[in-house]
């Protein structure tokens, strides 16, 4: 599937001209431009297609592959006289929102933090157990572990939505997002506990373990009770530690 490969490669630039008027539309058109050129050989048809697609479009950058495959299939059917224009614009408008919500939930607020935590665990493991492993393995490993499932998912999304004979909703059902959303946070909590335990072992020699535990409890309380953002918490804790140190030990000159 040469045209699908082309769309896949071009989809990485989806947000390059992100703007507050049409959002991802330009990137979307950029990805589909070579295929459109093949479908509509007449220049006026191509002009109409571009005009139709110039309204706003926004979704999760990974999930956009679903919409791209679907729109490509519909446009091909339309060019042969199968679908109506209303159907195409309706699907593009209706799919964006729900897909964005799903993508934000799965990728941005679960998969990405999880892989960050895995990277941190890897770093701590190297520091604690095997110092002779080269450190560049952490960034390289992070990139591979994060991207392998994501790229597989993106390509499958494009292919399945293009080849689907039925509604895209049925394709979406196959992802089984409920299980992902339900169990990935549990996995995340496990990783956090592992980090805490490892950190306590590493800090043992310096006697900082209780500080870390106290800080974690303080953060949880401050987050859930006062809804403080992470950046404010960083500076708040900095102030508390510096003030406490100054009060108990003096300025230290």
């Amino acid at each position: 599937m040469k045209k699908l490969n082309k769309i896949f490669l071009r989809s990485f630039m989806l947000q390059a001209v992100w703007n507050y008027e049409t959002m991802q539309t330009m990137g979307f058109l950029y990805a589909l431009y070579p295929s459109f050129k093949k479908i509509y050989t007449d220049k006026n048809d191509l002009k109409d297609t571009f005009r139709r697609h110039m309204d706003y479009f926004n979704t999760h950058p990974y999930m956009a592959l679903f919409v791209m495959g679907d729109i490509l299939r519909l446009e091909e059917e339309y060019a042969q006289g199968g679908k109506t224009l209303d159907e195409i614009s309706l699907i593009k408008k209706q799919l964006g929102g729900p897909l964005a919500a799903l993508g934000d939930k799965i990728f941005w607020s679960t998969w990405r933090p999880l892989m960050g935590l895995v990277g941190v665990i890897g770093t701590m493991f190297i520091y604690k157990c095997c110092r002779n492993i080269p450190l560049w393995i952490i960034p390289a490993g992070f990139l591979i572990i994060y991207n392998a499932p994501v790229i597989y998912f993106k390509y499958r999304a494009l292919k399945s939505s293009y080849c689907a004979r039925t509604d895209i909703v049925i394709t979406l059902k196959k992802i089984n997002s409920n299980i992902l959303i339900k169990y990935l946070p549990v996995f995340g909590l496990t990783l956090i506990s592992i980090i805490l335990i490892m950190a306590l072992f590493i800090y043992e020699s310096q006697g900082y373990g209780w500080y870390l535990l106290g800080g974690t409890v303080f953060t949880v309380i401050a987050r859930s009770a006062f809804k403080l953002s992470a950046t404010r918490l960083v500076y708040l804790i900095t102030l508390i530690v510096i003030a406490g140190n100054l009060i108990f030990k003096g300025i230290g000159y």
Binding site: L196, T219, A230, L233, V241
Partner: peptide, 10 residues
């Protein structure tokens, strides 16, 4: 050694 707690807590 304390700042990681912010991330873990959040």
């Amino acid at each position: 050694y304390i700042l990681p707690a912010v991330g873990l807590g959040t």
